[in-house]
Simulated scan of single mutants.
Amino acid sequence: MTQQKEEMTLTEHLSELRKRLIYVLSIFILGLVAGFLVADPVYQYLTKAETAQGFVLHAFSFWDGIGIYMKIAGLFSLVITLPFTVFQLWKFVSPGLRPRERKATLQYVPYVFLLFLIGLAFSYYVVFPMALSFTSSITEKMGLVETYGMKQYFSFLFGIVLPVSLLFELPLIIMFLTGLRILNPIRLRKMRKVAYFVLIFIAVVVTPPDFISDFLVMIPLLLLYEISVFLSGFVYRKQLAADAEAESRYIRAEDKQSVV
């Protein structure tokens, strides 16, 4: 009987997970449709921006233009879908949370969109111009004529902007996982060396191979991790206080029953 109940519970969980994934996929598809509507103005802005001035972009295949529009639509859909995905994740795990934890973790969802936009602005207006300037200077020193395809230009752009933007979600993700009691500041401090190594590696990979560019990206990433540890500690202390209060109420209730 118990085994059958566990199997039904597992089936219900899988059914709930499938429902949440369908919701996320539906929003992503709707975001793609909306993304195609804004793809042209976004493309015009990106190609007329200061970083793109001086470049004449070429189409080397019939599908280059459509491919760029699809990438822009995909990025737009990702921005729209990301907070909704986090909300669906919260809906999936919330039945196993205490009421206090359920309320505490829900408040992180709106900030997913805000942090992604901040990361998007930082990567586009700071990191990408540095990378483009460095590669162009090397090309100029080699005496080469800069002739770029639009596909290569936007692949280079999105290859830098998207990873850095997602990394700006780190503090929120760690707070969310701390709220779910998966992480805590003690564990984060123990894995600080490994985390630093990973973040430095990411900074070196997504930036031009010069120390200044690496340093300008590396410092914000390391600060993001330390902010994440601090915020995790804040959430963790509130959890301990709530647990202590609940235990105190339980002890008082037990004492009253023993007196009766």
Rank of each mutant, 00 (worst) to 15 (best):
L25G: 09
E140V: 14
Q107D: 06
V79E: 05
M218D: 11
F84W: 12
A131Q: 10
L120P: 00
I174K: 03
F215L: 15
L162R: 04
I160Q: 05
L46P: 03
S248D: 14
F154W: 04
P208C: 08
Y124H: 13
R100Q: 10
K71T: 04
I219A: 11
V56E: 13
Y69M: 12
V38N: 00
K151L: 08
L231E: 06
Y108D: 08
L17W: 05
R249E: 14
T81H: 04
P208Q: 08
A242C: 03
F197W: 06
Y225A: 05
V112W: 07
F211L: 15
G54S: 08
T139H: 11
I200G: 02
L25W: 03
E16M: 07
S155F: 07
G179A: 08
A121T: 15
E247N: 10
M191K: 04
S165W: 01
D64A: 07
A203R: 06
E247V: 04
L14Q: 05
F28S: 12
S94C: 06
V126K: 07
F211D: 00
H13T: 06
L30H: 05
Q257D: 10
Y69L: 09
Y250Q: 13
L180A: 10
G65C: 01
F156P: 04
E245I: 04
L132M: 15
A195R: 09
L106G: 03
I174F: 12
Y69F: 11
F76Y: 12
R237A: 14
I182T: 09
V260Y: 08
V194S: 11
G149F: 01
Q88N: 10
Y23D: 05
Y108H: 12
V145R: 13
Y196M: 11
Y69E: 10
V109M: 07
V93N: 02
L199D: 07
V126N: 09
I118N: 03
E140L: 15
L21P: 00
L216V: 15
R181T: 11
T11D: 13
Y148R: 13
L162V: 15
L166R: 06
R181P: 05
E226S: 02
E226G: 06
F28C: 05
F76N: 06
R237V: 14
Q88P: 02
Y153V: 00
S248Q: 14
F156M: 09
S258N: 09
F28I: 00
D210K: 08
V235T: 08
S136C: 02
I68F: 00
K141E: 14
G96H: 00
R20M: 07
A73I: 03
K19T: 10
V86G: 08
F134S: 06
P185V: 06
M175L: 13
I80G: 00
S155W: 01
G143K: 10
L144F: 14
Y125G: 03
S155L: 09
Q88V: 05
F168M: 01
P171R: 05
D210C: 04
F234L: 14
R181E: 15
K151P: 00
G159A: 10
A253C: 04
T47M: 09
